[in-house]
Amino acid sequence: MRRALISLAEVVFPFVVVGILWQAFHLLGPFPPKLFPGVETIVSTFVRLVGNGILPVHALTTILRLIVGFLLGAVLGVVAGIVMGRYRWAEDLLVPVVSVGNPIPGLAYAPLFVIWFGLGNLPAVLLVGFAAAFPVVVNTWTGVKAVKAIWIRAAESMGAPEHQLFRKVVLPGALPYVLTGLRLGLARAWRVLVAVEMLTSVSVGLGWLIFGAREFLNTDVMLAGIAVIGCVGLALEKLVFQKLEEFTVVRWGMMAR
């Protein structure tokens, strides 16, 4: 119990510092309060928007798009990465393409996706999947290449056929890299999704909420939206990725805690 409180305090403390600095700038800085609202205004707006259901609707819509798009990209990325790692022809074919595609910001394709798939959910989800797939492919491929030769040898000496070798040695052996890829992919998915919601003028979503609020100088609404984005990101990191790692690669001693 005491330990839980201390670890909570460790998480909260940096934000308290940021909050104090923010408030100081709000009181002493050059901006009028309308453009640079105080912490109390942001919090009360946050509470109000949560209470009347506006923020949850926007947040849920965005999270749903994120999940569908990211899963699409993750599955595609893992499969492509494994094929590249295992088969020489796929590696020769795909490495140049992925190398060129990886550094291009996903958002650069946004106008194309809008032209091809119209406005609404479809282009957003597809673009998110597309952008997220790149780091997943690169890391999965690296991970498959990094599977220790001695594991393969040991498994082969015990008569493992190709499909068993694949499922019971290559996949778990590559997992630390795959998880890193998924984490990077999710971060990219988040970024491109919020931006694309601003661009494609879908009528609901956190990106749209923030972008729409500028019309009325509602900086408090913008900041509330930004806070939600941060909270969701943190929750995904702590509740999904950290748990997944603790349960697998950390427990196996393949990654330091």
């Binding site: 001695i150 594991w151 040991a154 040695v169 997992l175 697998t248 196996w252 393949m254």
Partner: peptide, 11 residues
């Protein structure tokens, strides 16, 4: 049995 301790599957 190989020399390398890493021959076991860590998972």
């Amino acid at each position: 049995v190989f020399q390398d301790f890493a021959q076991l599957f860590p998972w």
